[in-house]
């Protein structure tokens, strides 16, 4: 039985439709990451699941129950807000126990479970403090503890890491994943950060303009992006996209191109600069990131391409290079729809 299912769910804000018949499912115990740029409707997905926004069409099922018409409190979901939404006037212990206390769990039991939850996320030392006295990371832990104290059917996490600085974010990312593995809970995690999605997710759902663009494992999303949108959104620097008939030297096993307008996509890793018969190009600029370097090139035909090279063997600016593309790592997309071309 599915942990969470959205079937044909639409949602609107005022008169603008922000979700268009979204179908989405998270299996029990799965960590599903909803990925997309801002405005794609990611948070709306969470809010519709939580019941904070109504679905204009479609049904939402949680743990096999149709919850579409239930109020938020009856859906048995927990949410971690981007702002954490901690109660400023309550201590950490009271914050964590809030959900239990309003559900008439005896005070003693509530406090014990709050402590246990705090220990799970490593904030047991903060129980007596108030949110105002906590750092960003500490608040985040408290928000997590509050979410898991009640053992909900689904955890909803709305960009929980976006307010942390990079180091902390990386650290919390790992902890979040570890926590998920320990709890085995169904989680839906919303983010606009593709790295976060790739690292955390069991599966990723890429959202664009209120529609699901692709759902798949991080591997699938990376290896076989379903559209140019996914292809460019996942990966940094973004995948190169050129008209398939652009004059570019194909290396490796390169079958003939089908006779229709296509686009070809290839990641910077698939570009080589020393192909014997490569396409001539000039180096516009070079970015060195540790062992790697990214060379930004302009092909003879005017197309721009990014290539990843070992830093030690990077070209100089304005240098002329010969570019080749490892065709085994290239992707073909329909030029008109942007969907992946499947031969």
């Amino acid at each position: 039985m599915s942990g969470l299912t959205l079937a044909g769910v639409s949602a609107a804000y005022r008169d603008a439709t922000v979700l268009h018949e979204v179908d989405l499912a998270a299996r029990p115990g799965e960590l599903l990451v909803v990925l997309g740029p801002s405005g794609a409707g990611k948070s709306t997905v969470l809010r519709v699941v939580a019941g904070l926004e109504p679905a204009t069409t479609g049904r939402v099922h949680i743990a096999g129950r149709d919850v579409t018409d239930l109020r938020p409190g009856l859906r048995n979901v927990s949410m971690v807000f981007q702002s954490y939404a901690l109660f400023p006037h309550l201590s950490v212990a009271e914050n964590i126990a809030f959900g239990l206390e309003v559900r008439d769990v005896p005070r003693r039991t509530a406090r014990e479970r709050a402590r246990a939850a705090a220990e799970t996320v490593g904030c047991a030392g903060l129980l007596g403090r108030r949110p105002g006295q906590l750092s960003g990371g500490e608040r985040q832990r408290v928000a997590l503890a509050r979410a898991l104290v009640r053992e909900p059917d689904v955890f909803l996490l709305d960009e929980p890491l976006s307010n942390l600085d990079l180091t902390l974010r990386v650290e919390m990312r790992a902890e979040l994943r570890a926590l998920h593995d320990r709890l085995g809970a169904t989680m839906v995690h919303v983010t606009h950060d593709q790295t976060e999605a790739l690292v955390l997710a069991d599966r990723i759902a890429v959202l664009r303009d209120g529609r699901v663009e692709q759902v798949g494992t991080p591997e699938q999303i990376w290896r076989t992006p379903a559209s140019t949108f996914v292809a460019r959104f996942v990966g940094s620097p973004a995948m190169n996209l050129l008209p398939a008939d652009a004059a570019v030297c194909r290396t490796g096993d390169a079958p003939p191109l089908p006779e229709q307008p296509l686009e070809v996509g290839f990641r910077p890793e698939a570009v080589t600069l020393d192909a014997a018969e490569g396409t001539p190009a000039t180096v516009d600029r070079v970015e060195v990131i540790g062992e790697d370097a990214y060379a930004y090139l302009t092909l003879a035909a005017g197309h721009r391409v990014v290539a990843r090279v070992p830093a030690a063997r990077r070209p100089a600016r304005d240098e002329s290079v010969r570019v080749g593309v490892r065709w085994a790592d290239a992707h073909l997309f329909h030029a008109d729809s942007g969907r992946r071309y499947v031969p």
Partner: peptide, 24 residues
């Protein structure tokens, strides 16, 4: 979002008033 949080925890109107609105 604090109020949405309370809604998710199924806090009653009285609970919301007593535990959130009033102290805040």
């Amino acid at each position: 979002d604090v109020y949405e949080m309370a809604a998710l925890e199924d806090a009653t109107g009285w609970d919301v008033f007593r535990r959130i609105t009033l102290p805040l």
